[in-house]
Amino acid sequence: MATFTTPTTFLALAVVLAVLGGAAAQQLSPNFYSTTCPNLATIVRQGMASAVQTEKRMGASILRMFFHDCFVNGCDGSILLDDTSSFTGEKGAGPNANSVRGFEVIDAIKTQVEASCKATVSCADILALAARDGVSLLGGPTWSVPLGRKDSRTASQSAANANLPGPGSSLATLIRMFGNKNLSPRDMTALSGAHTIGRSQCQFFRNRIYNERNIDAAFAAQRQQTCPRSGGDSNLAPFDVQTPDGFDNAYYQNLVAQRGLLHSDQELFNGGSQDALVGQYSTNAAQFAADFVSAMVKMGNLLPSSGTPTEVRLNCRKVN
Rank of each mutant, 00 (worst) to 15 (best):
A172Y: 00
Q287E: 13
A285N: 15
C117M: 10
P244M: 12
G77D: 12
A18T: 11
N98C: 07
T8A: 15
N182E: 03
I106S: 08
I175C: 02
A119H: 11
A221I: 06
G47F: 08
E90I: 07
L63I: 09
L262R: 05
L314Y: 01
I126F: 02
E55T: 02
R57K: 15
A221D: 12
M296R: 15
E104D: 10
G139A: 01
Q280V: 13
S85L: 07
R45Y: 07
V19P: 02
S158G: 00
Q157H: 02
L81Y: 06
G102N: 09
S305K: 09
K181M: 03
F178C: 12
A25M: 09
R206I: 01
N284A: 13
R206E: 02
L277H: 09
A97R: 13
F219I: 06
N211K: 14
A124G: 02
T120C: 03
C202Q: 09
P30Q: 05
R64W: 13
N249F: 01
A131T: 06
L277N: 09
D233R: 01
T189G: 06
P228N: 06
A108R: 08
R213M: 02
V145C: 11
T6V: 07
D151C: 11
V135T: 10
D82N: 13
V319D: 11
Y281N: 06
N211M: 12
L129W: 06
L303E: 10
Y281F: 15
L174D: 12
G74H: 13
R213T: 13
S136P: 04
S306N: 10
I175P: 02
L17S: 03
Q27D: 05
S273Y: 10
R206H: 07
G134H: 01
F71G: 00
T142A: 08
V19N: 06
F4C: 14
E212P: 02
R149L: 12
M177C: 07
D82W: 12
D82G: 03
V312T: 14
Q27E: 04
T3H: 11
A194E: 08
T42G: 00
P167C: 05
A128Y: 08
D187K: 06
V44N: 07
I209V: 15
V113L: 01
Y210Q: 03
R176N: 03
T35K: 04
R208W: 01
S200M: 07
A49K: 06
R223H: 08
A237G: 11
R206T: 00
L303N: 03
L302G: 01
L164M: 04
K181I: 03
F205L: 05
D248V: 01
A12H: 12
V145W: 10
T310D: 06
D133T: 01
H195Y: 12
G307P: 04
A124D: 07
S170I: 03
K110D: 10
L127C: 00
R313Q: 07
T308K: 00
R153D: 09
D265E: 12
P238Y: 07
G94P: 10
G246T: 14
Q224G: 08
S34P: 03
T36P: 01
V297K: 13
L138P: 05
N301R: 05
S61Y: 05
T120D: 01
A190R: 08
A250D: 15
F178K: 09
T283G: 02
A119I: 00
V312L: 00
A115F: 05
G198D: 12
Y210G: 00
Y252E: 14
